[in-house]
Design a binder for these strands. Structure first.
Length: 863
RNA sequence: GCCCGGGUGGUGGAAUGGCAGACACGGAGGUCUCAAAAACCUUUGUCGCGAGACGUGUGGGUUCAAAUCCCACCCCGGGCACCA
């Protein structure tokens, strides 16, 4: 008998698989396509346990699906543009590309060493020109579609990374940079945007279609998109007596039903009107103070003073369009310039913030929507004019109720999206004073970065023509590699790169030197894999529509908003792109959603912290592979926890998996009748000589049953991603085998032995591919049937997974008091009689009130 | 504040409303050995010598039966948050 030598067999089979192309997707295959994808790695160093987990899960799915008869596409690549490469280059006095490609080589070697079944013919590396040029192509396509804009607005600036960030890249309460954790600043800058907001509604609506996504992720995206329904209401500027001017200000509100309760009006301090209205008046100084305090405050300071609302009166008024009263205009720091119109109708009785502000500055708080349980309702039931000024409440009432003091609307149901709201909206619409409206929290995606190691934005600044997109023929814009970042050089210092002629007027012009956010690269890589070597398009539409959506996408929850939202946007935009542009008759893509099923794998932590290169708490898999081999490590990390749960890394238990694989190895030999020995030739096969052929029959039945049961359970578990319990089930089968091989050889059923050995091997194949292959091809001598990974998943017969005799628990009043063994198909009357007999002494002749029989499980006798 | 997860032995974790703790790790004891390792066997939720009692964050409820369903609450993790 050969000893289990993981290093020898793992290296041997990796070479053979590679030579035979067993992991490549077969384009012409008739089998149904299945696309399984793990989020591609960032080459920040060598792989760590988080990667091992992510890619082990994906590998099990891909191998399992292959055994289920699918033509599987399982590709890999690298998300290799980005700031860490630049920082590392500066630190190591090297270059970003050297660092990046060395890391890719290291990671590739590690992934190969782990035996993942990737289609290595389709590798996508985002910093390769033959990939990123298509990112530029898509940029131009988006430009054609009106999805690209360059504009000036307040942006997030990371002082450490020296670049702007998208809203999605600013995290936490304190507003820190997603990459370096530095607190970001606000700056007013001209930047490039993708108009993701034009897809806001669709991005939200289509979440409902994503049945295979975790609820949590959909919730997070819905939160982020933040849709509010309500109305725009037009207010007219007036003097303090209510004499109208011809100037209007529009506000957005989710509560048009409370419009009668609007007793003052608010502008964001940065609002241009705020300054203008108070200019040259006695109020100017106070308004300015509020404005300056907001401008200076960083997000941290804003956090600290969060609930403390400050404001100032502007000296001017607007007319409340329904009550015709003049209400004062204030500025306040709690009104955000970025949301809605930067102006708010304040209804202090119906909004807690307005309530606090009104209390602080002594402004009126008339009730307009009153709870049905509030005594105030009876008092005001028929009150149509605004009479009572301050509500007797301690806080605003934001729930639903009935409208009071609201003219003709008095008595209607009030609340969010209520009857009263619709009535007020209709009334306003008829008079041109407002309309139903929707607002989103989602902002456009700021995609330009003032960094070198990224995809150049294909545009030119021309003195005569303005900002000009490059024509498609001028692509690619190659990122120059002869730049010395260690000397502080940036793209703007690279003369040959910057000096170009304007594509329109042919005059000398300057090339755009910002690069695109790395997230633009990762927003469509899954499309490139299906047609990775296409030289004329980013991908072929027919091929993409055949393979996509990705059947199973696997990655970390940290991308719930960032990457997963951007990718959905790209897919939708690309779907709409072909219909407009120069790609010909066919739409580029039919598909609207890229990922059909999503598994968000939990993070691998060390001492409660996520493992990552930047935190320096990475556990490399090398030592463990060196000691136990890749199979042991793979099975271990899958066995530790269900895939979607976070996991605290610990090496305790790794040894147990090593023992498990060794035991499986020896058991297969034993099942084949070989004498099992250890490395020092001590005989390990121990047969129990006292066993009879009757024992052999019973154990044979047990083993046969477990073969069928475990094949079924492992299948169900893998399909539900309960990979830990799938492994536990295989361990149970092995335990059953161990019991059987206690039988002396002459008592064993040879056919059963072979069936058990093959089942064990096939079930192990997705998780521990190398040992399974060696057992299959060499030990079981099945080489002529081909690789274990080309076999069909073993069949099972559920009827044979049932025991003929089953043990039932007998409960009296819900407590287990006895056990009986009955035939699996015993009828209920028999079971009742036997159960009662078993607990007769306890029942003490009392007549049972009720007997519940749960098939195959228990009997409960209620007395 | 709003919205999601989660809370089960010493540990990781199992349980379509039906015997809580599968499968492992760790511990204890044993076999083999001059000895050790490996392997194998027994045992291992808590309390109790025992019969037995108690046990899934807390308190109630529904049910013949609750880790699982309902109500209230506590704790941990995550997302959003002065979004009108």
């Amino acid at each position: 008998m050969q000893q289990y030598d993981p290093h020898f067999i793992e290296e041997k089979w990796q070479k053979i698989w590679d030579k035979n192309d067993i992991d490549l997707m077969q384009p012409d295959n008739e089998k149904p396509p299945y696309y399984v994808l793990e989020m591609f790695p960032y080459p920040s160093g060598d792989v760590h346990m988080g990667h091992v987990r992510n890619y082990s899960i994906g590998d099990v799915i891909s191998r399992y699906k292959r055994m289920q008869g699918f033509n599987v596409l399982h590709p890999i690549g690298w998300d290799s543009f980005g700031l860490p490469a630049e920082n590392a280059a500066i630190k190591q006095n090297s270059s970003p590309q050297k660092w990046t490609y060395e890391n890719i080589d290291k990671q590739r070697a590690s992934l190969r060493r782990l035996g993942f079944s990737y289609d290595w013919s389709r590798v996508v590396i985002t910093s390769d020109a033959d990939y990123y040029q298509w990112g530029q192509w898509i940029f131009l396509k988006f430009w054609e579609m009106g999805l690209v804009e360059r504009r000036s607005s307040p942006v997030n600036w990371c002082p450490d990374c020296n670049t702007v960030l998208a809203n999605e890249q600013v995290l936490g309460n304190d507003g820190h940079c997603w990459r370096c954790k530095t607190i970001v600043e606000k700056r007013e800058l001209e930047q490039w945007y993708f108009n993701i907001t034009s897809y806001a509604d669709e991005l939200l609506e289509d979440l409902d279609e994503l049945k295979g996504w975790p609820e949590r992720v959909k919730q997070m995206q819905a939160n982020w998109i933040g849709k509010s329904t309500g109305a725009n209401v037009v207010f007219t500027l007036c003097d303090e007596n209510g004499n109208a001017t011809d100037e209007t200000i529009t506000v957005f509100t989710t509560r048009p039903d409370t419009l009668f309760g609007c007793s003052f009006f608010l502008l964001a301090p940065e609002h241009p009107l705020a300054l203008r209205l108070s200019k040259g008046t006695e109020y100017e100084a106070a308004v300015n103070t509020v404005r300056l305090s907001v401008e200076k405050a960083s997000s941290v300071e804003r956090e600290m003073t969060e609930r403390d609302k400050n404001g100032a009166f502007t000296g001017r008024y607007v007319i409340n369009p329904v009550s015709n009263q003049a209400v004062p205009i204030w500025v306040s720091d709690y009104v955000l310039m970025e949301y809605g119109t930067g102006a708010v109708m304040a209804v202090p009785s119906g909004d807690q913030r307005d309530f606090e502000f009104a209390k602080k500055y002594g402004l009126p708080i008339p009730p307009v929507v009153v709870s049905k349980d509030d005594p105030l309702l009876a008092e005001l039931a028929n009150q149509t004019d605004t009479r009572l000024l301050d509500v007797p409440w301690d806080e605003a009432y934001t729930g639903s109720g009935f409208m009071v003091q609201s003219g003709e609307f008095t008595g209607l149901a009030g609340g969010k999206d209520s009857e009263g709201s619709s009535a007020v909206i209709n009334w306003l619409s008829e008079r041109g004073l407002g309309s139903a409206s929707v607002n989103f929290r989602l902002r456009d995606w700021l995609i330009s970065r003032q960094r070198y190691w990224g995809n150049p934005i294909p545009a030119v600044h021309c003195k005569h023509c303005g900002i000009v997109p490059l024509p498609y023929e001028d692509l690619p814009v190659i990122l120059p590699l002869d730049l010395d970042v260690t000397a502080g050089e940036s793209l703007a210092d690279h003369k040959e790169f910057c000096e170009v002629n304007c594509p329109l007027c042919r005059q000398p012009a300057r090339r755009e030197t910002d690069t695109m956010d790395t997230f633009t690269c990762s927003s469509w890589y899954y499309l490139r894999y299906v047609d990775a070597h296409n030289k004329s398009l980013p991908f072929d539409g027919d091929t993409a529509d055949k393979w996509l959506p990705v059947d199973q996408y696997i990655g970390g929850i940290e991308h719930a908003i960032l990457h997963l939202l951007y990718s959905r946007f790209f897919t939708k935009a690309l779907r709409d792109a072909g219909l407009l542009g120069s790609t010909g008759a066919r739409s580029l893509l039919q598909l609207g959603e890229p990922f059909k099923n999503l598994l968000t794998q939990g993070m691998v932590k060390l001492d409660g912290e996520t493992m990552s290169k930047s935190k320096g708490n990475v556990v490399p898999p090398e030592d463990m592979i060196a000691r136990y081999g890749a199979d042991t490590l793979r099975v271990y990390i899958l066995f530790m926890a269900p895939p979607d749960k976070d996991l605290e890394w610990s090496q305790e238990g790794l040894e147990g998996i090593w023992r498990f694989l060794n035991r499986a190895w020896r058991s297969v030999y034993d099942l084949l009748g070989e004498c099992v020995v250890d490395s020092e030739n001590n005989v390990l096969s121990i047969y129990d000589q006292d066993l009879t052929s009757a024992d052999a029959d019973l154990r044979g039945q047990d083993l046969n049953r477990d073969i069928h049961r475990v094949i079924g359970k492992a299948k169900d578990d893998i399909e539900r991603f309960n990979l830990n319990t799938a492994i536990a089930a295989i361990m149970e089968l092995l335990n059953s085998v161990s019991a059987y091989i206690k039988l002396p050889r002459e008592l064993r059923n040879e056919e059963l032995c072979r069936r058990a050995a093959e089942a064990l091997t096939l079930l192990l194949a997705p998780m521990a591919p190398h040992i399974a292959e060696e057992l299959w091809c060499v030990v079981l001598q099945n080489e002529r049937k081909g690789s274990v990974h080309a076999q069909a998943w073993p069949a099972h017969d559920p009827s044979q997974a049932q025991a003929t005799m089953v043990e039932l628990a007998v409960q009296v009043n819900g407590k287990v008091r006895a056990r009986i063994t009955v035939a699996q198909d015993a009828n209920e009357a028999e079971v009742r009689t036997e159960a009662q007999a078993a607990v007769a002494t306890l029942l003490d002749n009392a007549e049972p009130r009720k007997i519940i029989v749960v098939g195959g499980k228990l009997v409960n006798i209620v007395v």
